[in-house]
Amino acid sequence: MSEPTTGRTEPGASAEPDVPEVSGTTGRTEAGASAEPDFLKVSGLHAGYGRARVLQGLDFSVARGEVCAILGPNGAGKTTTLRALSGMAGGRGSVTLDGTELLGRSPEQAARLGVAHVPEGRGTFNDLTVEENLRIGAHLRTARRWRGRAERAAVTADLERIYGHFPRLRQRSRQAAGSLSGGEQQMLAIGRALIRRPALLLLDEPSLGLAPLVTRELFEIVRAVNEEERTTVVVVEQNARLALDIAHRAHVLEAGRLVLSGPAARIREDGHIAEVYLGVPAHARKAG
């Protein structure tokens, strides 16, 4: 049994040089391995809150069209990583999306550069209807141009696309979003992000607080969207199995450092790692 690489990789070198490319038999293989492996490139990323330093130098890349899972225990810094990518947390180092630096941007600038962050807590606009929530998502697509008839038609088409993914949202389109169930609000949050055809979709614990069946449905939709629209996705999850099912690559974060990186299929099939994610504490693993 070959061990996946552990420990940090050298900044500047391509993300995980030592991990052999294994095509998973049941999982997904590398997407777009030929084209743009560094579509999202994170190098030497340090981030935190005031004096609390959370991320201690992350390096990883996500290819265009790929689903990347970031796994790890509570408090590891997964949310902080996504926040640094979307401008919600400041950081040092470098994060480029399609060659454009993202660090030092405000959330609204990052959004305008194509980053769609579905945050912890889902960011629902409670007082707005479901459809108005989606229109806010489409705001960027319409804000810059004169809102003529063609524009309205485009928004309608976008809404249809989202309702196609999430038929339940169509049924509730006139309802106040605050009255939706947790699962529906998560669908709405993802729909609000997808309606603007983001270059990069960031999902923070989409399974949190949802029934297993709903979660499964949600992840299947994310997989479908990734396949149909070639959206690049970074998904953060504590539920490792679910995330590994839809991811091409995965990284494990612990105490602000990547401790393991590799193809999702490999990580999923590795009994040792599975054991770790079934609750064996990190120190026990290190001792073993």
């Binding site: 959330p107 609204e108 769609a116 962050h117 945050p119 606009f125 409670n126 707005l128 806010i136 705001h139």
Partner: peptide, 24 residues
């Protein structure tokens, strides 16, 4: 109006509005 919608969104959840690209 869509400006009004954006204003209501900001009143409702400014940080989420920011993530949607609205200049709060």
């Amino acid at each position: 109006t869509s400006s009004g919608l954006v204003m209501r969104a900001v009143a409702c959840n400014p940080s989420s509005a920011r993530l949607s690209g609205i200049r709060v």
